[in-house]
Design a protein around this nucleic acid. Structure first.
Length: 658
DNA sequence: TAAACTTGGTTTTTT
DNA sequence: ACCAAGTTTA
């Protein structure tokens, strides 16, 4: 059963519908029309990386490859969606049938189907980061380590350690030695927590983000028939942002390509910014070793930025410790130098940005072509308030999310528990909403439900407790939800009815939260199946899903605020980089580690290369004494100092005069 | 045993 | 500013 590339009726016309040679430069053309076999495209910022992938998809489809057998793995689902849309525009609707998404969403799909091979039922639930941390916290308390004399890591640190071990393929001991020397003495205890955590999830059909990747890898590695079948299903594997994939993701890609070798990876070593998730920019260099016979193509012509911006970004990356193989150029001439400014305070910074945004809007720059970028979610707090006061609409990417709000998590816990009654961490959350039920009771009841089923909630001994009545109501709701076959929207309705009184009892600001529940309900109406809804909400930020839902028209009236990480792959006419101060960018956590500083520099590079026409570099003077929360030294970022010709590359702007 | 309150320690980026 | 742990009260 050979199911490799095969001709489709529509694809047999001999003259291509798309003039590839004139639409692409020679390097892009070579990548797009590559005959097959492993291909690595090193694509500098703004060199048409997305364009190349889009045309590659169209080319393959036009050649007669079944679109469903093309797998396009990207960093966000939005990116995959947009590429498929663009490919559909240049060729035809067949391109929308390409299988695309993130590694996590792909792994989710595969594991729903083949999970039994690695010990999971199709109805497993996914624990997002905070669920996973809650599980670790339960285990930590259970094992009693917090009572020890030495300070024991908190749930957040535990999660970081365990996740790093999974992503970097290391043992807990190795992670501790490398990254957390202060906890090295606690290795046996932390190991025990990690083991208990793994067992906890397996027994309850729960996966965390890392499990999706590692279990998918295990499935492909340990089950050759499944691997062969999937490899033939996906006859062409395309991976975007390859510099930010980690070892597990790279293995998944390799297994998928194992039968045919048609793997195309696109990335830029200078833009690797996810080492905290186990990505190593050196991986991209290993591609030709891993796939013998690889073709390597480098894209160096930049189509995004003006020459002054490009000169500046080239100067940033020139100071990287490892020298890179490419130098970007543009044929375009003219353009303004980046503007560097030093507002006297953080508030003055927000005011400056506000005024500049207003000016550009008056000049006719569309709001969605203006972006403000920063290192950490809270860096935009001042600006958000100010923009709100002046009636400038904005969307924010990164930072606190819709799905992380407590009331949304509550509702999702109800839904997860109906899909997977063994999901004790969701039950734990639900039960504590009831008056008179705290952590101890919740834990006991949750374990009872897992062992003995829903009926254990209405046993005689519990009926006498003061929360007996609430338990009966909960039991009835959940029984109805697990047995009834009604559509998703009705199930949500039932959950909201049960949850509303609990919400009102728990939160003083309940009226403010109710609209969010309606949004959730609206979002859910499109789904036929609860598992899919839950997986989508956990694997893609609803902000992005909603933005897509409301269409481009909605997005166009909003200025964009974004963390630099979330700005990956995007571009804007005008870009502000704020908090360009030592301690913020580079972040103070990175200052003691050379590799970490290198990554912060790449982060700055990614931010600056997002700009097409205008780039603002804003380094506020930090006022007041540094508290625990603001560790900035107040000096402008070292990355500015190290650029020797800074004075020639940027124009200074005196905010006092503005 | 839950809930309300005090105190002391921590700190980012994302699927 | 937030979270965990300890203390007090009901």
């Amino acid at each position: 059963m050979v199911r490799g590339p095969r001709p489709m009726p529509q694809g047999q016309n001999k003259t291509p519908a798309i003039p590839y040679a004139s639409a692409l430069n020679p390097a892009q053309y070579q990548a797009v029309t590559h005959p097959g076999g492993p291909l690595l495209v090193i694509a500098g910022a703004g060199t048409g990386k997305t364009r190349t992938l889009v045309y590659r998809v169209a080319y393959l489809v036009e050649q007669g490859v079944d679109p469903r057998s093309i797998l396009l793995l990207t960093f966000t689902r939005k990116a995959a969606q947009e590429m498929m849309e663009r490919a559909s525009q240049i060729l035809d609707a067949r391109c929308a049938m390409v299988a695309g998404g993130t590694f996590h969403s792909f792994a989710n799909l595969i594991l729903r189907r083949y999970g039994s091979h690695v010990g999971y039922p199709a109805s497993f639930t996914i624990a997002d980061r905070s669920d996973a941390e809650d599980i670790l916290n339960l285990i930590r308390t259970d094992l009693g380590f917090h009572k020890d004399k030495a300070r024991f890591p908190k749930k957040r640190a535990l999660m970081n350690i365990i996740s790093r071990a999974a992503n970097c393929q290391m043992s807990v001991g190795q992670v501790l030695a490398q990254e957390y020397p202060q906890y090295e003495a606690l290795e046996p205890e932390i190991e025990e927590i990690a083991r208990t955590y793994a067992r906890y999830k397996e027994e309850r059909a729960i996966m965390d983000y890392d499990d999706l990747l590692t279990k998918c890898r295990d499935l492909l590695r340990d089950h050759p028939p499944v691997r062969q079948r999937l490899s033939w299903t996906y006859a062409h594997v395309l991976i975007d942002e390859f510099q930010d994939t980690n070892a597990v993701q790279a293995e998944i890609g390799a297994f998928l390509a194992s039968e045919h070798g048609n793997i195309m990876a696109v990335g830029d070593d200078c833009q690797s910014i996810y080492s905290f998730r186990g990505a190593d920019f050196r991986n991209i260099m290993d591609f030709p070793k891993r796939f013998p016979g690889s073709t390597v193509i480098t894209l160096e012509e930049n189509y995004r930025s003006t020459q002054p911006i490009l000169s500046f970004t080239n100067a940033i990356i020139e100071n990287a410790r490892e020298k890179y193989s490419k130098r970007l150029f543009t044929k375009a001439e003219g353009g303004a130098k980046p503007i560097y400014t030093r507002p006297p305070s953080e508030l003055a910074q927000a005011l400056y940005v506000l005024q500049r945004i207003q000016t550009h809007l008056q000049e006719g720059v569309p709001p969605h072509q203006i972006a403000v970028l920063f290192r950490a979610g809270w860096h935009s707090n001042d600006l958000e308030v100010l923009l709100g006061k002046h009636g400038i609409a904005f969307v924010k990417y990164g930072g606190m999310k819709f799905i992380e709000a407590a009331h949304i998590k509550d509702v999702l816990a109800f839904l997860k528990a109906t899909v997977n009654p063994a999901d004790t961490i969701s039950w734990h959350r639900i039960l504590q909403l009831l008056e008179g039920v705290g952590p101890v009771t919740a834990k006991r009841l949750a374990e009872n439900v897992k062992e003995k089923g829903l009926e254990s909630l209405v046993s005689k001994s519990l009926g006498k407790r003061k929360y007996g009545q609430s338990l009966r109501i909960l039991h009835d709701t959940m029984t109805q939800l697990t047995t009834g076959g009604e559509p998703v929207s009705q199930k949500i309705e039932a959950v909201l009815t049960a949850y509303q009184p609990l919400l009102e009892a728990k939160y003083d600001d309940a009226p403010k939260r109710i609209p969010d529940l309606r949004s959730l309900q609206l979002l859910a109406e499109r789904y036929e199946n609860l598992e899919t809804l839950l997986a989508d909400l956990t694997l893609e930020s609803p902000e992005q899903a909603l933005a897509r839902e409301n269409g481009p028209r909605h997005r166009k009236d909003h200025v964009v605020l974004s963390t630099i990480h979330s700005a990956k792959g995007l571009e804007w006419h005008t870009v502000f980089i704020i908090h360009l101060v030592d301690g913020h960018l580079p972040s103070s956590y990175s200052l003691h580690d050379e590799d970490a500083i290198e990554e912060e520099r790449r982060l700055f590079y990614v931010a600056a290369t997002r700009a097409k026409c205008h780039l603002y570099l804003v380094a506020p003077k930090v006022q007041g004494q540094a508290s625990f929360y603001s560790l900035a030294t107040g000096g402008p970022s070292r990355f500015l100092f190290e650029i020797g010709r800074l004075g020639k590359l940027v124009r200074r702007d005196d905010p006092e005069a503005a």
